[in-house]
């Protein structure tokens, strides 16, 4: 394989892939949602009409109005501003937690798939056992002993969510390790580490990216559920989950506190899921015909 033709075919494949992604309406709308969310999170100080933490006792629990588009909470804080700043939390949690899960899952899955035999048995047994725990129970049990800081939460969500990736990567490695190009690399004297990381892994990247994208939505949902239960991101830091706790406490008098943060979560998770499904279709030639 000469470097030049390799680069050329890679560029062509990338072009086909982008075209595929843009022509898929689901993926396209997912991409638009995710892009807007990134912008909102980055430009939060510019976009937010008020400081999200400033208490205003003269305007407590006000319904949406021209002054406060999405109303105010029980401390008179502006909901729209809190919603905008909350997007930073969900973005951070989504990416860091999934990053951890993907890294752990990829390494363990690669080890299991590449070495096979008892390494495989051991790791896959471990995966089976981890899957017996309803993840929220496991997460809650660990969090009970930690400070409920956002970093701990991201770490715990990541460390309890790697099993799917591990299975996926293992399956990819099992089917790839017997291929000719791996044999060629071995004959030319490449070390195991080199074969795993620079020969096999690049060929398994596509499904990993798809599952990571779909995982971001799941991680955001988990964080919001934990924050809602009071064991996630702690107030006064605004997160969509702990805003909903406020909504639940004032359910009978302030409906806007329950509606909008949930809507924000729904749209965000929908965005990542649409993008993930679109990526899967674009990356999998068999799926295109269906």
């Amino acid at each position: 394989m000469s470097g030049n033709s390799n680069a050329w075919s890679r560029a062509r494949r990338a072009a086909i892939f982008c075209q595929e992604l843009l022509s898929n309406p689901l993926a396209f709308s997912g991409m638009v949602i995710v892009t807007i969310l990134f912008m909102v999170a980055l430009l939060a100080p510019v976009l937010a009409p008020y400081d999200p933490q400033v208490i205003d006792t003269y305007h407590i629990l006000e319904a949406p109005s021209r002054m406060h588009w999405l109303g105010t909470d029980s401390l008179g804080r502006d909901c729209l501003s809190r919603l905008i700043y909350g997007s930073r939390i969900s973005l951070l949690v989504g990416f860091v937690a999934v990053g951890i899960a993907t890294a752990v899952g990829t390494v363990l899955g690669a080890l299991a798939g590449f070495y096979g035999r008892w390494t495989d048995t051991l790791i896959m047994r471990f995966v089976d056992i981890m899957l017996c725990f309803p993840s929220i129970f496991l997460i809650m049990a660990v969090i009970a002993f930690l400070e409920p800081s956002i970093w701990n939460i991201m770490a715990v969500i990541g460390l309890t969510g790697w099993m799917g990736v591990a299975r996926l990567v293992r399956a990819e490695f099992l089917s790839l390790r017997k291929r000719d190009f791996v044999l060629a690399a071995r004959i030319s004297g490449a070390s195991n580490i080199r074969i795993v990381f620079s020969e096999i892994l690049p060929n398994a990247v596509a499904p990993i990216i798809v599952s990571a994208t779909l995982g971001i939505g799941g991680a955001i949902l988990t964080e919001s559920a934990l924050s809602f239960l009071g064991i996630g991101v702690q107030p006064p830091t605004p997160s969509w989950g702990n805003m909903l706790t406020e909504g639940k406490d004032n359910l009978e008098i302030a409906w806007w506190l329950s509606v909008y943060p949930g809507l924000a979560i729904l749209i965000t998770v929908l965005g990542y899921n649409l993008l993930g499904e679109g990526l899967r279709d674009a990356l999998d030639p068999r799926k295109r015909q269906r």
Binding site: K248, S258, L270, N273
Partner: peptide, 18 residues
Amino acid sequence: VFIAYAAPAFWVALLLML
């Protein structure tokens, strides 16, 4: 199905209660 996948269950519960 896409919407049901993305909606947090506790939020749906709040809306139904509301």
